[in-house]
Design a protein around this nucleic acid. Structure first.
Length: 594
RNA sequence: GGGGGUGUAGCUCAGUUGGUUAGAGCGCCUGCCUGUCACGCAGGAGGUCGCCGGUUCGAGCCCGGUCACUCCCGCCA
């Protein structure tokens, strides 16, 4: 017999009536009638109502106990009389008639109540995280996270993968995010870095002949936070496979995601076969490489219209002559929307830093014409051509943006979301996955005008290796891909480059010498010279998957002990000062500028 | 590094054009109450209006600065 309980707080029912039971839990809520007191006892599993009358010697003790006191209650299971049952509660047909009570741990007055669904400031929630986590919604989010992780583990094992741990203390890498550094006592002046991801290790695991790897891997990046991005640390489902092509990886991940999302959510999937969208198409049609496919709006290029003589929209025509392009978003059957709808979108676009969004509606009386501020600039023939390009009909409206490719992609991808939200076009009960494929190997850095890797420098370029044109690096595509769900990037991955000679050439384009690579990636590059299998992988973000499944917009809602935006743990008070002795041992001197 | 939002009781918030003693709900304390489940009723305590400075006869309110939290941009191969 357990010292604290015979049952948990959710399992008693009419079956146990008249039984003596022992329950332990938190005092969730008290209803004090003076001579009769009800209390809800709560634990991880649920809630049970207990009742005590003033003839019981423990009555005054309970009357004085504050919420969240931890109690051990012994009593008899009693059937509730009809009319006093609470069917919202699993144990609502019975209650415990209290015989005796022991206070296991008392609680002070709470900085934030556990009871109820009121919102509380982030600062208090983080400082008193243990209280926040007792609240039903947070508690359930964390349980969901745990179940998701075990489900993933068991599915991956079923798919023939094995889980391997990789080092947490490793070496700093020149590419990518800022590293978290850890000073080495035994090697004064030298530092370990926490892994931004186990990238090189998982490739080394393949080279070591293990074939299929996965890990629920902690990753550390010293970059600024966002709502969907923890500062410092996060978890990836890290995957790597040997002797595979891109599609083999897609198959595994699709199977896993479909299974996972169907198991943990009642929302439907737009398609269980995830569409594959080349990067270039995604940028053209959605203006972004993480499109929300629940949103039916598509961006169309209508630059050619502005070369017509019967189009009088001089501002745009002038810009087009000097190289700008014009792209449009069509909204179906919006001719009756009030003027304010259109103006709000235009105003919003200006707030986003764009020069605004021009718009008009296609109407027809005698002939087809454009209605709205810029509608008069288009002839009937021009409108017909627009309708043909955009697959638009009378009654539809058109939003236009003009500028260089990058500007337009940015504003129209935002506008696509904004307009869809305004028109309520996004089905919230849907998961829409897709693959974005064929990323360019390189891109031009805006500031330095240098060629840099656009994604992962260890990726395999596409095409016959003998025919790769290193003179035109921006045209080289890679076997690189992202998986996106509802506009959220879950992960990127790649087929890796396992050929050292090719790797030297690819890095040379981005300005790295052979020595740079030999120094910085010594472990991996050395291994490639002793027989490396073709391999590839991916690493979906666990936190974001759980966010999607829990329907939460903020990563802290699905993280047990998160840090705040300034990368501070308000509960543990990290980071903190350390004493001089520790610093001395590590050969470190502080030099703080302010 | 930059931009936006917020900051008034333990918590959620209201506070008019700058004008007497800054309010409400929840929580807390006291009393009453034997069928509640957001129990009810009566009473009470609780405030450096984030902080510093300025304008003014007078500042929660206006101005400048600063701090905290948050959202976004940059950043995150």
């Amino acid at each position: 017999m357990n010292k604290y309980r015979s049952h948990n707080c959710s399992e008693l029912s009419e079956k146990e009536i008249n039984k003596s039971v022992l329950l332990s839990g938190w005092l969730h809520r008290k209803r004090d009638h003076g001579n009769l007191l009800f209390l809800d006892l709560r634990d991880h599993f649920g809630m049970t109502q207990c009742v005590i009358e003033n003839n019981n010697k423990y009555f005054p003790v309970l009357e004085k106990s504050k919420p969240e006191t931890v109690l051990k209650i012994s009593g008899i299971v009693v059937k509730r009389t009809s009319g006093t049952e609470n069917l919202d509660l699993k144990t609502g047909k019975i209650e415990i008639s209290i015989k005796s009570v022991e206070i296991l741990s008392s609680a002070k007055e709470l900085p934030m109540p556990v009871f109820g669904e009121q919102e509380y400031p982030e600062e208090i929630r983080l400082k008193y995280r243990f209280l926040d986590l007792r609240r039903e919604e947070m508690h359930n989010n964390i349980i969901l996270r745990s179940k998701v992780i075990s489900f993933i583990r068991s599915e991956m094992l079923k798919l023939g993968f094995l889980e391997y741990q990789t080092p947490i203390l490793t070496s700093s890498s020149p590419e990518g995010a800022r590293d978290f550094l850890v000073p080495s006592r035994l090697n004064p002046g030298k530092f370990y870095a926490l892994p931004q991801a186990p990238q090189q290790f998982k490739q080394l695991i393949m080279i070591s002949g293990f074939d299929k790897y996965f890990q629920i891997a902690p990753c550390f990046r010293d970059e600024d936070a966002r709502a969907d991005r923890s500062p410092g640390e996060f978890y990836q489902l890290d995957i790597e496979m040997s002797f595979v092509e891109q599609n083999d990886i897609f198959e595994v991940v699709e199977k896993l995601m479909v299974n996972l999302f169907n198991t943990f959510s009642s929302k439907k999937m737009l398609s269980e076969k995830f569409p594959k969208i080349p990067y270039e198409d995604a940028m053209n049609k959605y203006g972004t490489d993480k499109p929300d496919l629940r949103n039916p709006l598509i961006i169309q290029d209508i630059t050619e219209i502005f070369n017509r003589d019967d189009v009088k929209f001089d501002i745009f025509k002038k810009l087009v002559k000097s190289g700008s392009i014009v792209r449009a978003i069509i909204t179906k059957n919006t001719k009756d929307k009030p003027r304010s709808f259109f103006d709000n979108i235009d105003k919003w676009a200006k707030e986003q830093g764009a020069s605004g969004l021009a718009y008009f509606t296609i109407e027809k009386d005698e002939e087809i014409k454009g209605k709205g501020p810029v509608g008069k600039f288009f002839s009937q023939e021009a409108l017909k051509q627009i309708m043909k390009i955009c697959n638009a009909e009378v009654g539809d409206s058109i939003f236009l943006a003009c500028g260089n490719k990058k500007e337009i992609e940015k504003i129209l991808s935002l506008a696509r979301n904004k307009i869809a939200q305004s028109l309520n076009l996004i089905d919230k009960n849907l998961f829409a996955f897709c693959w974005i494929t064929d990323y360019p190997m390189y891109e031009l850095d805006e500031n330095s005008k240098k060629i840099i890797f656009s994604h992962n420098p260890f990726s395999m370029p596409q095409g016959k290796l003998s025919e790769l044109n290193f003179q035109k690096p921006l045209a080289i595509k890679a076997y690189q891909y992202d998986i996106v769900c509802n506009g959220i990037e879950l992960s990127s991955g790649a087929i890796r480059n396992h050929l050292p000679d090719l790797m030297y050439k690819l890095f040379a384009v981005a300005g790295y010498t052979k020595k740079d690579i030999d120094d910085k990636f010594s472990g991996m590059i050395n291994a490639f010279n002793y027989g490396a299998p073709p391999h590839g992988g991916i690493a979906p973000g666990i936190d974001r998957i759980v966010m999607l499944l829990a329907g939460k917009e903020n990563i802290r809602e699905v993280t047990l002990f998160p840090m705040n935006q300034n990368a501070q743990d308000l509960m543990m008070q990290a980071p903190s000062e350390v004493n001089e002795k520790q610093l001395k041992e590590l050969s470190i001197k502080k030099d703080i500028k302010n």
